[in-house]
């Protein structure tokens, strides 16, 4: 950012939920709760971002997060460009910067980025004047997922203060878990995590969460049970004997769910490995809010684009 940077009185980027205030999270969730009315209309589009350009650059495979962001931008009338890049050619910072300079030459207003390297979105946010939204960086953060999770919880529970959220699975390698932990702690919720010792080490307590190693210890008193997706390729490395054993020890089935609070919310960031993280009767049962999470993802992304996008277009910056 040079000295010609115009005065900003608000946030430019959404890189992660660490350090984002309760007031700001509340503003984003309130905006999302209102803006989702657009998605229920006959004409599912408002002119808010007409003439704006949003580029999405996914350096990791993703279908639905990318589609959700694309649709969010389109519902606000922005033009959307998808930038495809194979992760192998862009692992190095220099190459990412070159890619970003190319994108910058199109004068975009926002970049949605998913990248295997933690901190990649932050680097671009510092270097360029447009808004950057982190759609997942390595094992670091995935703020829009946590925001949509919190919106879904808030729809059912009201205030999150004092609520108890159990996150089950590979906490250590999960950007979804990290963003949720930061956001939920800021909103005053209690967070308890459960998973195998290798995926859920005691050191996680430094993030302000309780650490357990058996799912049965966290199910009973939880208001929300959030099951993380298990990446099968990671199971072997993590000293687990395999998918079946993981499902037996950490999967949510109907017997475990019966011991939970009758109003408990069951969440999953998708896509679900049926029979691994949860059995089909749980995934399709009346406590599951998985599809509400998907709808709210669209709303949260619309809200962020509305709140973040900056000054009147044109070329305000020095060339």
């Amino acid at each position: 950012m040079g000295s010609t940077e115009p005065k900003r009185t608000r946030r430019k980027d959404m890189l992660g939920l660490r350090g984002v205030s309760r007031a700001e999270i509340t503003q984003i969730l309130d905006t999302a709760a209102r803006i989702r009315a657009v998605n229920r209309r006959r004409v599912k589009k408002v002119p808010t971002l007409r003439g704006r350009t949003v580029v999405s650059a996914f350096f990791e495979n993703s279908t639905r997060t990318r589609m959700s962001f694309d649709l969010a931008a389109k519902r606000l009338s922005a033009d959307v460009l998808g930038f495809s890049a194979s992760s192998s050619s862009t692992r190095k910072g220099e190459t990412l910067m070159d890619t970003a300079r190319n994108i910058d030459a199109w004068r975009p207003d926002a970049l949605i980025i998913r990248h295997p390297c933690a901190g990649a979105p932050h680097m671009l946010a510092k270097a360029f004047p447009w808004s950057v939204i982190n759609a997942g960086d390595g094992i670091h953060e995935h703020p829009t997922q946590a925001l949509l999770d919190m919106l879904t919880m808030r729809d059912h529970l009201g205030n999150l203060e004092g609520r108890r959220v159990a996150i089950v699975g590979d906490i250590l390698h999960s950007r979804v878990a990290r963003s949720n932990i930061f956001g939920l702690r800021t909103m005053g919720a209690q967070v308890v995590v459960a998973g195998p010792g290798t995926m859920c080490p005691k050191q996680l307590e430094s993030l302000g969460v309780e650490v357990r190693h058996r799912i049965d210890e966290v199910v009973e008193d939880a208001d929300v049970i959030m099951m993380l997706r298990i990446q099968r390729e990671r199971l072997g490395r993590a000293m687990m004997t395999g998918v079946a054993e993981y499902a037996g020890l950490y999967g949510l089935d109907i017997d475990r769910l019966r011991r939970a609070h009758p109003e408990v919310l069951v969440m999953h960031p998708g896509p679900i490995n049926r029979g691994v993280e949860m059995t089909p009767d749980v995934a399709d049962g009346d406590r599951s809010v998985v599809l509400e999470q998907v709808s709210n993802g669209l709303a949260v992304r619309m809200a962020l684009l509305y709140l973040l996008l900056g000054e009147e277009g044109g070329d305000a910056r020095a060339s």
């Binding site: 005065k7 009185t9 503003q27 309130d30 905006t31 408002v46 000054e311």
Partner: peptide, 19 residues
């Protein structure tokens, strides 16, 4: 709010209401 012609002044965005 979503139809305003002065949203992008660089200032804090207005709070949305219900239609």
């Amino acid at each position: 709010t979503l139809y305003r012609d002065d949203l992008y002044t660089g200032l804090e965005k207005p709070v949305l209401g219900d239609t």
